[in-house]
Amino acid sequence: MSIEVRQVKSKKERKQFITFAWKIYRGDAELNKYWVPPVIADYMKTLDVEAFPLYEHADLALFTAWKDGVMAGTIAAIANRRHNEIHQDRVGFWGFFECVNDQDVADALFDAASGWLKTKGLTAMRGPVSPSMNDQCGMLVRGYDSSPVFLMLYNPPYYNELALRSGHHIGQELLAWYIDQKIIDIDRLRRIALHVMKREGLSVRILNMKDFDNEIEKVRDIYNKAWEQNWGFVPMTRKEFDFLAKSLKPLANPHYIYFVEDSNKRTIGFSLSLPDINQALKHVNGNPFSPFGLVKYLWYSRKISMVRTITMGVLPEYRNKGIDSILNTQIADYGGKHGVFASEMSWILKSNEAMSKLAKVIGGKPYKEYVIYEKAIA
C-alpha cells in the first residue's frame, strides 16, 4: 500500500481539498447527524492567497494524501510572520485537517506540514488553527452529541488519537459554554447592570447599521486592546477586520451587537453575538447560494433558536468593573423577547479563570471542549 502526498496548486485542486470532508462525514451516520458542511465558497476564499488578507503577512501550503490512488486526507500549513514577530517565537500552524482513520496517512500529512514549515525556519507546529487564531481553531475532544455553532468546528473522535500518536501534545484547552437563558435570574442581572451603569456613568446602545464602517472600527480598536495579553493573540489588521466584517454583515442583527459608552460617549466595551446560522447551513450541503440551497437556508433560518457570543471586549481601565453584566443583560433580554433562550460563549481558554467565572455567574455550563496541539519540528 503506497501513500503519496501532493501539494495543492490549482483552483480545482483547492475545491477538491475542501470537499474531501464529505467523504469523512457523509459516510458515518453518527458523524453526519451532527456535522455542518462548510460553505464551499467561503472556504475557497479563505484558502485563496490572492483574496484572503491574512496572507499579506502569512504563507500557506495545502497538502492532500492519497492511498493507493484514492484521496485519504488533507492538511494546511501556515507560516504566520505577524504571529512570530509579536510573540517572538518560531511557531508554525496546521489546520483544515481531515483524514481517514489511518495512522500512516495522518503521519504523512503531519510530516508534509512540518517539513514545509521547517523550510520557513520554524521550530514548532501548533494546531488545528484554520488558518489563524482569529478564525476557526481547536480539535473537539468533548461534546460530540450536538452540532457545532457558527464558526466552530466538529471532528471525529479518532482525530485526537491520530494527533497524539503522531507525537503531538496538548498545548491549550478551549471551552464552549452553553447558557440556558430560561434559568438566568434576569432580574438580579438587571439590578447589577443598572448599578454598574449608574456607578460608572455608562450607557449602552445597539450597533448603528447606517454607520457600519465606523462602528466596526470601534470594535476592532477595543478588540485588539482587550485581548492583546491573551495566549496566541495576534491583533487583526484593518484589512483583515474589514474583510471579516463585510462577510458577517449580512448576518448581523444589531440587537445582538452592543456598545457600552462612558459619559463622554467614548466606547469602552462591546459584545458581538450572531445567530447560529449553522442550524440553517446544516441543510444546504455547503451551497447556500444555489437557488435550491437559498430556499432551504431561508426556510430553516426562521427557526434559529440560539446565538453565539463570539467575543466581548472592555478597555483595560474598565476591567473587573462589571461591564459584562450590562452586555449579558442586553443579550438575555432581547433573546427572551424573541424566543431565543439559548446561547454559546465560545471559545474561551480553559485557563482563563475570569471568563469562566463570568460564564458561571450567568448560568453557563462548559459543554464542549477543544484542544490545540503542539509539537516540535525535528
Rank of each mutant, 00 (worst) to 15 (best):
T237M: 09
G293K: 02
N160L: 06
A376E: 13
I372Q: 02
A378Y: 09
K303T: 14
L164M: 14
W22D: 07
K210H: 10
D28K: 05
R319V: 10
N278F: 01
L117R: 02
F150T: 15
L315R: 11
A124Q: 14
H338S: 04
I304A: 05
N352R: 04
S356N: 15
F233A: 05
S343Q: 15
S114P: 00
M312V: 15
T311P: 00
K67F: 11
E228W: 05
K357C: 05
R205V: 13
P254I: 05
Y297W: 12
F93E: 00
N320A: 08
I348R: 01
F233M: 12
C99T: 14
N160D: 08
D185K: 12
A280R: 03
R191T: 13
S273L: 08
A176I: 09
S132P: 01
S290P: 06
I222H: 03
E240C: 07
L194C: 10
V100P: 03
A29N: 06
R302I: 07
I331M: 13
V196S: 10
Q181W: 00
E98I: 02
D59C: 09
V39I: 15
N155R: 03
R142P: 03
I216A: 14
D221T: 10
D221M: 13
A61G: 09
M236C: 10
V141R: 11
S114T: 15
E4Q: 13
A376R: 11
L47E: 01
L298K: 13
K210G: 04
R302K: 15
A359M: 03
L174E: 04
A124D: 04
E215D: 04
A61I: 12
R142A: 14
I170R: 11
L274K: 06
G313T: 03
Y297C: 09
A359E: 09
I183T: 13
L47I: 08
K249A: 12
V307T: 14
P254L: 03
F97M: 09
V8E: 00
N160W: 02
P128Y: 04
L175D: 06
T237N: 11
D187W: 08
E85D: 09
L327R: 05
A176V: 10
Q279N: 08
F243Y: 15
L60Q: 02
N214P: 01
N328S: 09
N134H: 07
V204T: 11
I257S: 01
I183E: 11
W94T: 01
A106R: 00
F63N: 10
F17D: 05
A79V: 00
Y154D: 08
Y367M: 15
R199L: 08
I183W: 00
Y318M: 10
R126E: 12
D213C: 02
I206W: 08
I323F: 01
N253R: 10
S325C: 01
P37H: 04
F110Y: 09
P316G: 11
